[in-house]
């Protein structure tokens, strides 16, 4: 075996190009799973202030369980982020002298696949702001069914009352959709799933899922803006 200490076992796997790719793919699947749940939860906004706040309150009341879940989610996200940084860094180093002219063949790479690092950065900025604006945003309380609960609904509507914020939110969701449109099928390929019949279907489902998440989250932000204008 090679003298490199990082050549075998789990460590060797994680140090390798393929190990990193696969972990990238698995964390992507988990993050998409979270996004779907998040969207479903957010849809409760359509049910009005009490329904949404009741849901938020139930989540907050989970206490330590919620904190553990959040830490796991953060860990998944950070793994995805740091692997991306490592991969991009290595990829830049792999071609030190650039081509004078380089064309996409049109049969492989797409705008989405070429821009993964950039769309990723936009999503990162978005997530930080998103947490600051909502989770750690203005804190309102009110009484719901005899209990004092956080009025997250108010925080959300107030945020979207600013059309610039709504526009930024929609743009960020479009960027996320672009990221996912390559990401979903790429994750399947990385974990080793490719099939003459199913891969084209996976690509379609990936695009539909990306579009669904983008449209879903965007529509809710526009709905938030609309509610703020009629109040």
């Amino acid at each position: 075996m090679a003298s490199n200490t990082c050549s075998t076992g789990i460590c060797g796997y994680l140090c390798s190009s393929i190990g990193k790719k696969q972990l990238m793919g698995v964390t992507a699947f988990l993050l998409i799973g979270f996004l779907k749940t998040h969207l479903l939860g957010n849809l409760l906004i359509l049910g009005g202030r009490d329904l949404f706040n009741d849901y938020a309150h139930k989540l907050i009341s989970l206490g330590n369980i919620l904190i553990v879940a959040e830490v796991i989610l953060l860990a998944i996200f950070l793994i995805h982020l740091f692997l991306a940084i490592a991969l991009v860094w290595q990829n830049k180093k792999a071609r030190p002298v650039k081509y004078h002219s380089k064309k996409r063949t049109g049969r492989g790479a797409t705008f989405a696949s070429d821009t993964m690092p950039y769309t990723g950065v936009v999503i990162l900025v978005f997530i930080v702001l998103h947490l600051l604006n909502f989770k750690y945003g203005t804190y309102y309380e009110y009484e719901l069914n005899g209990v004092i609960v956080r009025d997250l609904y108010q925080t959300v509507i107030e945020y979207f009352s600013n059309p610039l914020y709504t526009a930024w939110y929609v743009i960020a969701m479009i960027v996320m959709g672009i990221h996912l449109s390559h990401g979903v099928q790429s994750a399947f390929q990385s974990v080793g799933f490719r099939h003459a019949r199913y891969t084209p279907i996976i690509k379609k489902i990936g695009c539909a899922l990306s579009a669904g998440l983008t449209i879903g989250f965007s529509a809710l932000s526009i709905y938030g803006y609309y509610i703020s204008t009629i109040n």
């Binding site: 190009s17 393929i18 990193k20 790719k21 696969q22 991969l87 290595q90 990829n91 180093k93 792999a94 071609r95 996409r104 063949t105 049109g106 049969r107 492989g108 790479a109 797409t110 696949s113 070429d114 993964m116 390559h182 099928q185 790429s186 390929q189 990385s190 974990v191 080793g192 799933f193 490719r194 099939h195 003459a196």
Partner: peptide
């Protein structure tokens, strides 16, 4: 060598039509 990002430019440029399914198999 760099890390694959599954963009498939290799498959598109390969003069012998080697397919991406080989990379999936290697994974």
């Amino acid at each position: 060598f760099g890390n694959c990002t599954n963009a498939a430019e290799c498959e598109a440029s390969c003069p012998k039509g080697i397919e991406l399914s080989n990379i999936a198999r290697m994974n």
